[in-house]
Design a protein around this nucleic acid. Structure first.
Length: 223
DNA sequence: GCGACAG
DNA sequence: ATCTTGTCGC
């Protein structure tokens, strides 16, 4: 699987912010897909001992949620972790992993925010626009926006609001468990994203895609 | 200036 | 994210 276009990655902080502002205009927040046969999960872990990033991608059969394909790659970390510029650190190794994927998914569930981002261009948006594929941003913690705590039962949610704008959903995937932050990545609407994440997180707090990718990456990390 | 800040 | 002990809340 290859990106629909390329851009340089060795940018300064200011250049990265400018690029985000530019690319944010390309984000589409309406449903632009038909059926989802395969859904991808992405996760990245950092190994502090050799300063590398380990990126894992799993392809799940959307109906059975069985793992159809998976790949793990390791790459040097070349960009620092800066809140708001997450994708410039994590996407290079993720792109390297995607280049080895044979099964093209119809949707990618990302570990990180989509438009729930200061410039409305989180990791999920960046990946979606680069590959021209529907993506969902799914974060464990908040980057920006305000919300009221959703009701404790599974399926309840409340809007994540920045200024006057709804930028995502705070979704309770398991009763009495901390909610997760769902936002539009690319070519999907917020209600659809919310529904799919809930469907993928039937057993655990995080969607099965993220869980499988996390498991894959950690198996490589701990050796 | 201070606090907040995806992974 | 990773590293880690005791501590707090339900």
């Amino acid at each position: 699987m290859k990106p629909s276009f390329e851009h340089v990655w060795n940018l300064t902080e200011q250049e990265a912010i400018q690029l985000q502002t530019h690319l944010a205009k390309k984000v589409i927040s309406s449903d632009e897909f038909l059926t989802i046969d395969y859904v991808a999960g992405v996760d990245v872990a950092y190994s502090k001992y050799n300063n590398t990033l380990i990126a894992g991608i799993v392809i799940l059969d959307m109906r059975s949620l069985d793992v159809t394909e998976s790949v793990v790659v390791e790459d040097d970390a070349s960009f620092p972790y800066i809140p708001g510029l997450f994708s410039f650190r994590e996407l290079p190794p993720v792109a390297k992993a995607f280049s080895q994927i044979k099964t093209v998914p119809q949707l990618v569930v990302c570990d990180g925010q989509g438009v729930a981002h200061p410039r409305r261009f989180g990791l999920a948006c960046h990946l979606g626009v680069l590959y021209d594929i529907p993506t969902i941003g799914c974060g464990k913690t908040r980057l920006c926006g305000e919300y009221i705590e959703p009701s404790p039962e599974r399926g309840s949610s409340s809007p994540l609001i920045d200024q006057t704008e709804i930028i995502g959903n705070v979704l309770r995937t398991q009763t009495n468990v901390k909610p997760i932050f769902v936002s539009v990545g690319h070519k999907i609407s917020l209600p659809t994203a919310n529904q799919i994440v809930l469907q993928l997180a039937t057993k655990y707090r995080l969607p099965e895609t993220t869980r499988q990718a996390d498991q894959l990456v950690n198996a490589r990390l701990k050796r």
